[in-house]
Design a binder for these strands. Structure first.
Lengths: 334, 334
DNA sequence: CTGAAAGCGCTAACAG
DNA sequence: CTGTTAGCGCTTTCAG
């Protein structure tokens, strides 16, 4: 058995409550007493049992993060932002990979609830049913939803301004003189994807002469590749492609290489996300930067703020800005 | 306040100890009683307080994972393997980003110790001093070291067979007919890097005529780029480069593009790790595959096994095999 | 098979 | 400023 507050108390010749006070820095302990206690507990390598503390305080100093898969670089960034911030606020972060599986996600929620985490950050999968959401609303711990634009009255949300990013993409391509444009995107059921597409369409409307071809497939390298192959067949005259994610754009790039079309000489490619490798592929990908790290940070901040005053647990919605990062995959036409 | 075991007991008209037994499946509860209790607790949406339980059982059902940065895709894979396995064993995983900072790492260790985690997986930074290591040996919880070949008597370790990977790389390049070979690597202070280099040198010795140029720099994209630029100046006759990591290899690839040297036509490039993007860059990178996910899994497995019998906590060392993955960045000479 | 009771280690009133 | 005491919610003997 490890050493407890009693040992420290006995060793320093004071009562356990004095030890507790000395360690927690509450006022009302004589300076010398405190220092003595601190010295003893350091010597004994005393480590307060967080369970015992949490049992009485009701706070675990732990946050839960439920994402789909940490191997997705996007979520790794988010996780890092959340962990750094949680740590600053004295909290640990429990990592949960939900894998697009609604039941698995809900299983994590329940597990975290059992651990009495102080808050949960989650990227809800689109397949989360009303029933599930209702369960969430009944939760006693605060939940922050990531990448869910729908401004719920029940949960706080943090999301990138996907629609504005779509508009930005459109404006940029138009400015470069492109008119025969294609858009490859992921699942129509994922809000972040559809918002980008909506913004893009809206942005293109500014130019009457623009022609837009839209394709959907899964949001993966393979999906981007497949859509591009189809596009080259159906619309070989296309001069620019906007992909809803960098991963999709990588698939586009790969397809272009195989089709012998040079980027950006023959065709421009624009991505979304700005994951680290966007700057590494060839050609370096011009893309819409999304503040991934900051997304995680913002979510954790909201949760930490709740900890301060449990009373005023008002719902909050943060939308973080996006921006264009010009590299070398797009060029001015003509 | 959330609902407790007392509420369930009262509602089902039995004693709390009966509820506890019914829920924990221990024998000695009448079938009907158990079912009744289970029904009630489900209706009440009862969630046992894990703190209270842990306080008495002494087990937290939580593992800690200390890595340098989850944004490194390599660690994301490891983390995923560890999380999946921990979860299977009924444990949560606390994520800690230690950032190559020995003090930060030790801070995490102490924090996790306070939380009474059941075990810690860590990638010890090379700068961890003897003093730090001694602190670790005094820990009451089991610690598994990742990527630390030195077979300690004090800690269990899990590592990829880096040296064998280096040998594999040498044999492959020799088989392709290369003789003027370069090797770009990361810090000389990182064991996983030096093991790869050692294996590579040893493997090359098989061919008397082989000439080897070795360069060191930081293990990043930029490092690989810089070393390649220098190499092209100093040894333009080189026909093949072995990089100690895929990230380094990406830097090499980039430098080649800028220098107008075609891969693999003009020069072959071989990586190490097989991160996901190795197959996506152009040309797809031939590399030594390292079982990242399995590394995380193995580490978690060791910890979970300890949980079973705390008595037989024998130190264990696992070395996982590596293999060559041929893609398109190397070619046969002549 | 079930109930009563003793803690696990700590914090937080309440006295002194 | 410091000691006493009563729990936090749960598991686990020990009786019955």
């Amino acid at each position: 058995m490890s050493i407890t507050i009693k040992d420290v108390a006995r060793e320093s010749g004071v009562n356990i409550s004095t030890v507790s006070r000395a360690l927690n820095g509450s006022y009302g302990v004589h300076k010398e007493t405190r220092e003595h206690v601190l010295a003893i507990s350091a010597r004994l390598d005393y480590r307060p049992n967080r369970f015992a503390r949490s049992l009485v305080t009701g706070r675990s100093h732990t946050l839960g993060l439920i994402i789909t898969d940490i191997r997705n670089p996007y979520f790794a960034d988010v996780a890092r932002g959340a962990e750094d911030t949680a740590r600053t606020g004295g909290c640990d972060l429990i990592l949960c990979n939900g894998d697009w599986d609604a039941d698995k996600q809900m299983g994590y929620v329940h597990s975290l609830l059992g651990k009495r985490v102080d808050g949960i950050i989650m990227t809800p999968v689109a397949t989360l049913k009303r029933d599930h959401l209702e369960q969430l609303t009944r939760c006693t711990v605060p939940i922050v939803l990531l990448n869910r634009a729908a401004p719920d009255k029940l949960f706080s949300t943090v999301t990138a301004d996907n629609e504005a990013g779509g508009v930005l993409a459109a404006q940029y391509l138009l400015r470069l003189g492109h008119r025969r444009i294609a858009h490859v995107s992921g699942s129509r059921r994922q809000r972040s994807m559809t918002d980008r597409s909506a913004g893009f369409s809206r942005g293109l409307k500014a130019a009457r002469s623009a022609e837009l071809t839209v394709l959907h497939n899964e949001n993966t390298f393979a999906g981007g590749y497949a859509m591009t192959m189809e596009l080259l067949r159906r619309r070989p005259e296309t001069t620019a492609i906007f992909a809803s994610s960098d991963v999709l754009a990588f698939g586009v790039l790969r397809a272009m290489i195989e089709a012998g079309r040079k980027v950006p000489e023959d065709i421009s490619v624009l991505g979304f996300d700005d994951i680290e490798l966007a700057g590494v592929v060839h050609p370096p990908l011009t893309t819409i930067h999304q503040p991934k790290y900051e997304l995680g940070r913002a979510a954790a901040e909201i949760l930490l703020a709740y900890e301060g005053d449990k009373a005023t647990r008002s719902v909050e919605h943060r939308v973080l800005g996006v921006k264009l990062v010009e590299r070398e995959s797009c060029r001015k036409l003509g």
